[in-house]
Design a binder for these strands. Sequence first.
DNA 1: CTGAAAGCGCTTACAG
DNA 2: CTGAAAGCGCTTACAG
Lengths: 341, 341
Amino acid sequence: MSKMPTVKDVAVYAGVSVGTVSRVLSGETAVKSILREKVNDAVNALGYRPNVTARALRTSRTDVIGLIVPDITNPFFAQLAASVERASLECGHSLMLASSHDDREAEQSHVTAFLDRSVRGIIVVASSDSPGLHFEAPVPVISLDRRFGTFPLVSTNHAQAAALIADHLYRLGHRRIAYIAGPTDTEAGRMRKEGFVTRIAGFGKVGESVELEIAHGKFDYDSGERIARELLSRPPQDRPTAIAAASDQQAIGALRAARDLKIDVPRKLSVTGFDDISLANLVVPRLTTIRQPADTLARRAVSLLLEEPPGTEDEMVDGSLVVRGSSGPCPQLKVIAGDIN
Amino acid sequence: MSKMPTVKDVAVYAGVSVGTVSRVLSGETAVKSILREKVNDAVNALGYRPNVTARALRTSRTDVIGLIVPDITNPFFAQLAASVERASLECGHSLMLASSHDDREAEQSHVTAFLDRSVRGIIVVASSDSPGLHFEAPVPVISLDRRFGTFPLVSTNHAQAAALIADHLYRLGHRRIAYIAGPTDTEAGRMRKEGFVTRIAGFGKVGESVELEIAHGKFDYDSGERIARELLSRPPQDRPTAIAAASDQQAIGALRAARDLKIDVPRKLSVTGFDDISLANLVVPRLTTIRQPADTLARRAVSLLLEEPPGTEDEMVDGSLVVRGSSGPCPQLKVIAGDIN
DNA sequence: CTGAAAGCGCTTACAG
DNA sequence: CTGAAAGCGCTTACAG
């Protein structure tokens, strides 16, 4: 690989000007087919590949999309990243990935770094709600899953999806439910909680009312395990019969707590999650949860970014309920203590 | 953000030539401190940021490292990617990520794409052993975890680590062991198996011999579950007392099979993995496994890439045994059938 | 429809 | 030590 051929080499080989070569390559302007063929032959003969850097300098555009996620080792974000990469590729773009480690400053500095390399656009899964200020960016910016600044957001319809869970548990007969909420400084955390709470409250008006208890934590395993352990350490008659968690990781933590306390899921306790990470289908029992359509979300985000002009409206994609083994009918509570647990 | 200032703007503002601005910015050549200050003031006043594209075109170098992994949703690769990103950042480089979906062609086309954008170097976790041909790359290429082409490899010392597992199980008294191997078309798969088998064979010469059975699968959950189910469906006296898997995912699949068949782990069966993905510490029981030092691996790979001249030697990093709840003493087999299982 | 030329924003020999 | 100038490889008005 001595030296890459340039437009000039191609031009000489084909006996035309560099301008013509460029025109053939871009395919926009009309070029006589005789010349076009000569150029194409030269390209093949020389193994010419355009220098994207030079092109970028000239046009101040690249075909790189920047993606910032809070933590790539989080399975849901990994799935999202994979989907965004696929969607980008389908549109002829490459992906540049950065992790913010849930740190707002790192996030901001990654944005700057992306801007410095004049990416085509930036998709960010925010570390947490950013302050309202909408900074000017020379390229389109889209929020994915969690709102970044005031940029348009593509997300699951969290409220709708959370209501699906509420319906599911209500139909199974649960009337004492605990909800493990996510961080209130994330839109997802708030919306999921709100959707769940609102739907539960609605039941009181048309049917039997439900006793709802809410605890807040982070979206991670530990929060779920810790909160569930607290909830389940009470005497049986004071325990919820169902725990709905705001994330699969929390739910899996809750499953673990239940197991440690020897509480049978789903016969004594139902547990539900949110996200449908691949792990949800591997734990025992398999987790009833909400499937977030990662592929659709990613594709929409990339589309909004690439549209001319770029999209400015929020978009919501419905989630769907995935019923598995971790949820079941509300147990008949017999109040003879020995019979329980 | 009307128009980014350029070196020229800075030069005018500071009353010097663009060459001087460039020299101050690069910091290499000596520049009189009076001018240096003027330039720095101008840079701050104007909020100047160098255009990395122009710099790249001129120097045909960027500060982007390309990373190709087979599948970012695989937890171990996600961890590796996170570590590589961190290591790159520490060296002032950005990360460009691509997934090959375990497809050699996609892998190759990603390499080309990276080359096209003249990345500083490429790290690839190969989809499977590539053919021996060592193509010429204009930038350094390093294999990580799994060998790519004939490029230098940074990996865990798989054989050493696998021997650690063999020792562990032997000490626990297991004398009938099944090994779930990884794909033989990966170096990791082969080395782990070889290390395990060799160590087990060694016991026969100095102590009690061990009955070893080997099955091959992919590195994924399903392979582990399927193979373990087969192994464990036999009558108790024909079953292994320990299953060592070549990956955590396989091991977790095996745990699942054991659970389905109501075989108590670790009391009736020990199960071990390899990788120490974060999930390993979350399953029930927690998985005994080998910790691959992802951070160290990543840092070494980045170092080799950035060294002048780039490293050309393979590097091995020792893994370490992490003992958790999934492995225990070999059960005393009572041959009264009803008592078993 | 095509060629000659300018210019994107830098870096770096080359003089002085 | 510093400035003037060339040039990295492209694209795109501007003439013709």
